[in-house]
């Protein structure tokens, strides 16, 4: 078992709001040092203000390679070796396929997919090797079903699957295990925007065998488990966290 007195260095991209914020808070509560990167400055300030010094905030635009590089240069000074990297940045603007304009497509790809690559490219060289380090990518069940946040969202999240599989051999040799957690409907600001009507949200709940929406804490607990050295043999997997919704008959 990992020594609970040893503080680990955790990086959560997209960690100032939604699922990412809960992930950052859970790690911080367990005594780890957490670096949160996000584009929402106000949310960063609110998160770090009540973290008692355990969460460090960084303003980063993940859709910009230059911004990510600049952040990585800062990060290495405070976090010379990273134990766990979590990518939770994601946007969507649900709309019919023929109404997805070119800027919306580009922006969704830039944050959800290109940003993932940029951050991995910048952060993987900073990760601790052969000591149980880990990568967890927050994907989406919509990549499997094609439903949810729109076709652009599904495609952007789908890209994480192939990227994950491409990294399995290289990261495995370095003792870094990596996985994708694929939630479906999780109570968050994003879900409230996508489903503002309570009746629509109830229809979603009716489709979930476990009988409730997922909570950020459900995902954070899974991410924390996968981030530990004890979970090292779970490597290269796409783990659906959906309350049993996806693979059931209508």
């Amino acid at each position: 078992m990992a020594d609970p007195t040893v503080k680990r260095n955790i990086v959560v991209v997209g960690g100032a709001a939604g699922i990412g914020r809960e992930i950052a808070r859970q790690f911080a509560r367990s005594g780890d040092r957490v670096a949160v990167a996000d584009i929402n400055k106000q949310a960063i300030e609110e998160l770090t203000a009540d973290s008692e010094g355990s969460i460090f905030g960084y303003y980063v635009d993940v859709s910009s390679w230059e911004s990510v590089c600049h952040w990585a240069d800062d990060l290495i000074r405070r976090f010379p070796a990273i134990d766990s990297f979590i990518y939770s940045a994601g946007i969507t603007n649900r709309r019919p396929f023929l109404e997805i304009d070119w800027p919306a497509w580009q922006k969704t790809m830039a944050v959800n997919l290109h940003g993932l690559f940029y951050c991995l490219k910048a952060v993987l060289p900073l990760m601790r090797q052969q000591q149980g380090a880990s990568v967890v990518i927050i994907g989406s069940g919509s990549a499997i079903t094609g439903t949810g946040g729109g076709v652009h969202y599904a495609a952007s999240k789908g890209g994480a699957f192939g990227l994950l599989r491409a990294l399995v051999a290289e990261l495995g040799r370095k003792g870094i295990h990596c996985n994708v957690v694929a939630p479906r409907v999780i109570q968050s600001e994003m879900l409230d925007r996508l489903y503002p009507d309570p009746d629509d949200k109830q229809k979603l709940i009716d489709q979930i065998p476990i009988g409730r929406l997922g909570q950020p804490a459900d995902i954070a607990a899974l991410v924390r488990f996968l981030s530990q050295q004890e979970a090292q043999y779970i490597h290269g997997q796409i783990i659906l966290a959906d309350g049993g919704r996806t693979f059931q008959a209508d």
Binding site: F97, L113, G146, G150, V151, A154, A155, G158, G159, F161
Partner: peptide, 12 residues
Amino acid sequence: ASQSAVQSLTKG
């Protein structure tokens, strides 16, 4: 990554 993305595009 592009291959899995386009497969999700197909599903969508």
